[in-house]
């Protein structure tokens, strides 16, 4: 088993943390995992991405040309990764900010208005976590309970007050995908 994820969006949308959270959950699940950021000379407002590889065997390359899954939060990321996802793979699209539709028929598209759902939950800043709840419901590689445990275990002390809203965000994302049927 090997799953590859690229998380991409504007700096500030929380894609790096999102990837780390998934990586923590995968580690706690007893799996092999690598997390690697794009760390070019980037700045707030620019596009940032990270790659997470999860496997049940030792991981060779922590970077991939064609990920099985791309999770995109803004239009430049969608334009970059739509063509790169492996056939039969998945592209998860923050449809609140990306109006374009996936035109490929050989991959699955999961449209989640993560930014809007995050506002419903109480803060636009948890759009990343909403998306993770949605992603792990559509693609259950790691139980969402593991992510909750990872949030509890790895959020620094001065951010513990945000646990509840993050839990709500995970639930909202999961609920949205379940409602899609």
């Amino acid at each position: 088993m090997q799953e590859e994820f690229v998380f991409s969006g504007f700096g500030g949308q929380g894609v790096m943390f999102l990837g780390q959270l998934l990586a923590y959950a995968a580690m706690d699940e007893g799996l092999e995992v690598t997390w690697i950021p794009s760390y070019g000379p980037e700045m707030r407002g620019g596009t940032a991405h990270c790659t997470v590889v999860i496997a049940d065997q030792p991981i060779g390359s922590p970077i991939v040309r064609n990920p099985k899954t791309a999770v995109v939060f803004n239009l430049p990321s969608f334009e970059k990764y739509e063509s790169l996802v492996k056939p039969d793979g998945l592209i998860a699209i923050n449809s609140a900010l990306i109006e374009d539709k996936c035109t490929r028929t050989d991959i699955n598209a999961l449209e989640v208005p993560a930014t809007s759902l995050a506002e419903e939950v109480g803060s636009v800043r948890v759009a990343n976590i909403v998306m993770l709840g949605a992603l792990l419901t559509a693609l259950p590689v790691i139980p969402i309970e593991r992510v909750k445990a990872a949030l509890e275990g790895h959020l620094p002390k001065h951010r513990r007050n945000l646990l509840e809203i993050n839990f709500s965000a995970l639930a909202r994302g999961a609920e949205y995908v379940n409602a899609m049927g």
């Binding site: 580690m27 995992v33 690598t34 997390w35 690697i36 950021p37 922590p62």
Partner: peptide
Amino acid sequence: QIGQMMEP
């Protein structure tokens, strides 16, 4: 890459 990568 070794410097920037996270792994367990």
